[in-house]
Nucleic acid binder design. Structure first.
Ligand SMILES: [Zn+2]
Ligand SMILES: [Zn+2]
Ligand SMILES: [Zn+2]
Ligand SMILES: [Zn+2]
Lengths: 141, 141
DNA sequence: CCTTTAATGAGATTGAGTCTCAAAAGTAAT
DNA sequence: ATTACTTTTGAGACTCAATCTCATTAAAGG
């Protein structure tokens, strides 16, 4: 956890931003699990734990963390963004159960390479991608 | 265009739904271009053309068309769904310019196959996927 | 400390999309 | 056509995630 604090401090310093207790609280909460949670979840977890961070600050801090590459934003296309810490996870994409909400992670080096080739073909300089598979998990079929 | 009308009538009949002038107007508007437009765009295009279809009906009709496989919904993760007609286009994914909004279409048989393998590995039965590449197009670099 | 500047909180606002319910219109049988 | 029944429509209220406003609070550096 000590290293998490330093990660945050360094990230903020790099951007010329200030280290505050609220930002630490939000970052701590996001580091607590490897789930893919939305901002409201994170906000209410903090709230019910008795700590005081406003909704606006939670949203603003999450944006800061995403920009600083500490958190990844997951766009599932259902109107709620999800977030996951990037503490130890390298790049991956997601396979989502439309029944129970279970989210598994996958990473396929070949797909990543093919994406680069597509970018070259269309003469785009890619900065990010969204790749999600939706279906029924083993338990839900 | 005559065939478009029949496509709509058949699609509605299959679902036990009624053929109405409003549904025809919405479907016509979506068939007019091969763009990837959001519901508000479609609504205002109809409105400014002098035809009268309410916002609620435009949204409801688009849903009907998506369910009937006449229209594809595109989830770009920015809070606005886009729609495109499926008149002649087979399956494809999208490569999007984050600067000018340009959307190109791509389709890679190998990626599609690799997705199936991932689904097998994770024991999911896939029903759809989202795959979008975001970056700068040639003109915007 | 003191000053400067950024961050926070409470609540208003936005914007896409959905819901409600009375009125209108399609459908089928008489 | 008339009637009876059911679905669809329209206007506007409502929802929900997310953003914005602005007065107050608190970092950071000297
Ligand atoms: Zn499941
Ligand atoms: Zn993940
Ligand atoms: Zn561009
Ligand atoms: Zn397309």
């Amino acid at each position: 956890m000590a290293t998490n604090i330093q990660l945050l401090k360094d990230g903020l310093k790099n951007e010329g931003l200030r280290y505050t207790s609220q930002r630490q609280i939000v970052w701590d909460e996001i580091c607590k699990t490897d789930d893919h949670r939305d901002a409201e979840d994170i906000y209410f977890k903090i709230k019910t734990s008795g700590q005081k961070v406003s909704r606006a600050t939670v949203y603003r801090t999450i944006d800061v963390l995403v920009k600083n590459n500490l958190v990844r934003k997951l766009e599932l296309g259902d109107g709620r963004n999800r977030y996951e810490n990037k503490l130890d996870s390298s790049h991956h994409d997601h396979i989502v159960c439309i029944q129970c909400g279970r989210i598994d992670e996958f990473m396929d080096e070949n797909i990543e390479k093919l994406q680069d080739e597509i970018a070259k073909k269309y003469q785009f300089k890619i900065v990010r991608h969204i790749h999600q598979l939706f279906g029924l998990c083993r338990d839900c079929r």
